[in-house]
């Protein structure tokens, strides 16, 4: 079932967006999310929609793929919207039926919530569709590099993230194998009484933990053997460097921020 979640999985198309420096995409996504929370009215969302559409078009990630990624979250969106719809008070009552009261303000809020969530998810998804986890990690490492001076181990965090990403598929496969092995020993995960079910789950979690620890130990040794000694004095095979397209993109992001916020707050 975990495999069905396509949101956030890198989708290579070789587009310009894919080739941008990850720092640009991080900044762009971050600012985009901020912008949609400043809007008070529809025009801002329209500007956002135009930009989002453009980015999707340029990224060459099929719209169908993006929509499929959103599917698992639809329930959450509808749920939040419904809550706002029914529980927002206001004078401008559109519909009333016994205790159920729907106001114009509530409807507006519900629509905004859906649009906001939709934009938020699509916007961040576009970043992960066009950026490999590794590039993302490197982008974060470089972007937060200055924090090193404040003795925050940015490099170590970034490396941890990238190693975690490498081991996720390995551990998922392992979990699958352990589940099958314990099922072969008659373990119950779905049926049976609660005690049996808990013992079934424990029989998966402990081996998984033991194996993860063992892998961590092995990996630490292998890193030691390959001269790892922290971030100090490290060079990079693929250092991040801005090129013309990155500066242009920063420009576009700036223009977007100004136009969308202006449209969303003042029109």
């Amino acid at each position: 079932m975990l495999r069905d979640i396509t949101i956030g999985q890198y989708y290579p198309t070789g587009s310009v967006i894919h080739k941008l420096d990850p720092r640009v995409k991080l900044a762009g996504t971050f600012l985009f999310i901020i912008s949609i929370f400043t809007f008070k009215n529809y025009p801002g969302y329209i500007v956002s929609l135009i930009y989002l559409g453009m980015v999707i078009f340029i990224s060459k990630v099929p719209l169908k793929h993006i929509l499929k990624g959103i599917k698992p979250i639809i329930f959450l969106m509808v749920f939040t919207a419904v809550i706002h719809l029914f529980f927002t008070s206001g004078d401008d009552i559109l519909f009333e039926f016994y205790a159920v009261k729907i106001t114009y303000a509530g409807l507006k809020k519900a629509v905004f919530i859906i649009v906001r969530l939709l934009f938020l998810i699509t916007g961040s998804a576009i970043m992960t569709y066009t950026t490999t986890p590794n590039q993302l990690t490197e982008g974060i490492e470089k972007a937060f590099g200055p924090l090193n001076k404040a003795h925050i181990p940015v490099h170590e965090f970034a490396l941890m993230m990238s190693i975690a990403l490498r081991f996720i598929p390995i551990l998922m496969e392992e979990a699958d194998k352990i589940i099958k092995a314990q099922s072969s020993r008659g373990a119950d995960f779905e049926e049976g009484n609660i005690i049996k079910r808990i013992s079934g789950i424990v029989s998966i979690l402990i081996p998984l933990l033991v194996s993860a620890m063992e892998r961590a130990k092995d990996l630490a040794l292998a890193m030691d053997a390959r001269c790892y000694h922290g971030g100090e004095g490290r060079t990079k095979m693929k250092p991040l460097r801005y090129t013309a397209k990155d500066y242009i993109s920063y420009g576009i992001i700036l223009v977007y921020m100004v136009t969308s916020v202006a449209a969303g707050r003042f029109i």
Binding site: S162, D218, A222, C227, G233, T235
Partner: peptide
């Protein structure tokens, strides 16, 4: 080492081969 999975650090082959060189400060 013994376990092939537990000694590869990077998510791309060439970046893994570069790991020791990055650690020892070899120029790009």
């Amino acid at each position: 080492f013994q376990n092939p999975d537990n000694q590869i650090v990077a998510n791309v082959v060439e970046e893994d081969v570069a790991f020791a060189l990055e650690n020892t400060g070899v120029p790009t």
